[in-house]
Write a protein that binds this DNA or RNA. Structure first.
Length: 482
RNA sequence: GCCCCCGUAGCCAAGCUGGUUACGGCAGCGGACUUUUAAUCCGAAGAUCGUGGGUUCGAGUCCCACCGGGGGCACCA
């Protein structure tokens, strides 16, 4: 059994020691005694002297040990890189001007039985970084910073929404009917119920039920699951912010969205001008608004709308290399054309508006443009950041939309929606004009941390199982000191 | 699901058109060293070259399959 202590009294975080003694003269010794703890990340032995670097969650500080004053000096110099230790001693400055804690007492808290990667080169293999994030976090400074920033971004998001009196809720992750988005779900099974359940693809329909229930401003930040391909911007489970705001419409929501994103950037980064992928992004408000058709005209140079003859639309799509299916109507064709020709080109931030009804089964029809909806997506750096709209509130129209979706499903579209009778029943009780928004939190974090792959903002991204490779069971030798 | 690329010791990493005992660095091990900063110096060691087949007198290198990863496409409110 290990004789490592069950608990240990630490008096200072490393950053507190560093901050409080930044201006010591070289060679100075204070009479401030501190106890710090962390991992030994480097060691430089020099005979009767030894230097080490102790790292905790707040930073690094040098350790200074002397054979004549450090107890069990041989044991100290025999520590492994990566060992968790606690050190008690005075704060001092070496002759070369490196702030240090003198090792007057020390204790081993946990031995690192596996060697840490190269102290200088770190880990380059992404597989190792994602699989063994516990190692990556110690070795890769940027990784640690990214996840700290992620926490700050989400905290800022909550702070801003709470300040506007939105209420945070949690709704089911196990859904009897997958709904609220066009996506393939993961299926699971509940034994006692004897029923299949679906991991949610969106919380949308539950949150709008809450508006029916009188929660006028509501949001949820949580995981959703989509059974789709993986890429630099797609992880099968990812985090969404969804919010609903009674009595408001899409224009209000666009304003809230840009203020939210710019506000988070200001709070967390101190600026609304950021750099992404080598280019500047100006998140300051207001953001440009442009209809989908205006953008198609701008980027593809063709004028299309819902009145364009469908044969002509198909021909245009083919000209731009868009793959079309027989059951696509004009709305779907226009959306496909937009996605092919515009989306990746849009640096933004820009709100793309006026999505066709055909591709927006939960959005309310545009008050001035029949066939279109009051829906918008914000595009930043060529990526979809969020989606929002004036919500469809009429239960009869919603039923028709669901039925149209089921027709698509019957035509072979396994991402189409199915009729949710309870949701329709909720709408029958009355949903006032309401605006809704969904934000991809991981993508927002990517944007604000300058990260180009979602795996760098998700602590444990989905990977294939490694099947025993590199695990203790594989017969690899592990150094057990006890 | 498709295409391209990658996989050499705990980590980083050479290895040109196939040619004998696979170059090094860090970490680890032994030794020297009382102010180092990726400490330095000396010494010894550590490799089923992702796995399995195949071609060849000879394979880390060429071919096939599989495993894992990366990028792209498809898919993706």
């Amino acid at each position: 059994m290990s004789n490592a202590p069950y608990r240990f009294d630490v008096t200072h975080r490393v950053c507190e020691v560093v901050d409080a003694h930044a201006n010591l003269e070289p060679g100075a010794e204070t009479d401030t005694v501190v106890t710090v703890a962390g991992r030994l990340m480097l060691r430089r032995d020099q005979g009767k002297l030894a230097f080490g670097s102790l790292q905790d969650s707040s930073g690094r500080v040098q350790l200074f040990a002397m054979a004549k004053s450090t107890p069990e000096y041989e044991g100290f110099t025999g520590l492994s890189i990566g060992d968790w230790i606690a050190v008690t001693g005075i704060v001092m400055m070496t002759r070369r001007g490196e702030l240090s804690v003198r090792v007057d007492e020390w204790a081993l808290l946990a031995h690192a039985g596996r060697p840490f990667p190269d102290k200088w080169h770190g880990i380059s293999d992404p597989d190792t970084r994602y699989r063994q994030r516990y190692v990556d976090l110690w070795v890769t400074e940027e990784a640690r910073q990214t996840f700290i920033r992620r926490s700050q971004i989400v905290a800022s998001m909550r702070r801003i929404l709470h300040a506007q009196e939105f209420i945070e809720v949690e709704t089911p992750m196990l859904h009897p009917i997958p709904g609220g988005a066009l996506a393939r779900p993961f299926v699971t099974h509940h034994n006692a119920l004897g029923e299949d359940l679906y991991l949610r693809i969106a919380p949308e329909l539950y949150l709008k039920r809450l508006v029916v229930g009188g929660v006028e401003k509501v949001f949820e930040i949580g995981r959703v699951f989509r059974n789709e391909g993986m890429s630099t911007r797609h992880n099968p489970e990812f985090t969404m912010l969804e919010l609903y705001w009674a009595y408001a419409d899409h224009a209000d929501m666009m304003q809230l969205t840009e203020e939210l994103v710019a506000g988070i950037a200001s709070e967390v980064l101190g600026t609304t001008t950021i750099e992404y992928d080598g280019r500047e992004v100006d998140l300051s408000t207001p953001w440009r608004r442009a209809t989908m058709e205006e953008l198609i005209a701008e980027y593809a140079g063709v004028d299309v709308n819902l009145d364009t003859p469908i044969d002509e639309l198909r021909a245009i799509c083919e000209r731009f290399g868009v793959e079309t299916k027989a059951h696509y109507g004009p709305g779907k064709l226009i959306l496909e054309l937009y996605e092919k020709t515009c989306e990746a080109e849009l640096w933004g931030p820009v709100f793309v508006t006026d999505y066709p009804v055909e591709v927006s089964p939960l959005s309310r029809e545009h008050r001035e443009r029949p066939g279109y909806t009051e829906r918008f997506e914000a595009i930043v750096a060529g990526r979809e950041l969020c989606n929002g709209f004036s919500e469809l509130t009429d239960p009869l129209i919603q039923r028709q939309r669901f039925e149209a979706q089921e027709a698509d499903r019957d035509a072979g579209d396994d991402e189409a929606m199915v009729v949710d009778e309870d949701y329709l029943r909720a709408l029958e009780y009355g949903l006032p004009g309401t605006a809704g928004l969904g934000v991809g939190v991981d993508r927002l974090v990517m944007l604000l941390t300058g990260t180009t792959t979602i795996r760098d903002v998700v602590l444990f991204p989905t990977l294939k199982p490694e099947q025993g490779r590199g695990t203790a069971e594989s017969g690899e030798t592990v150094d057990h000191p006890h």
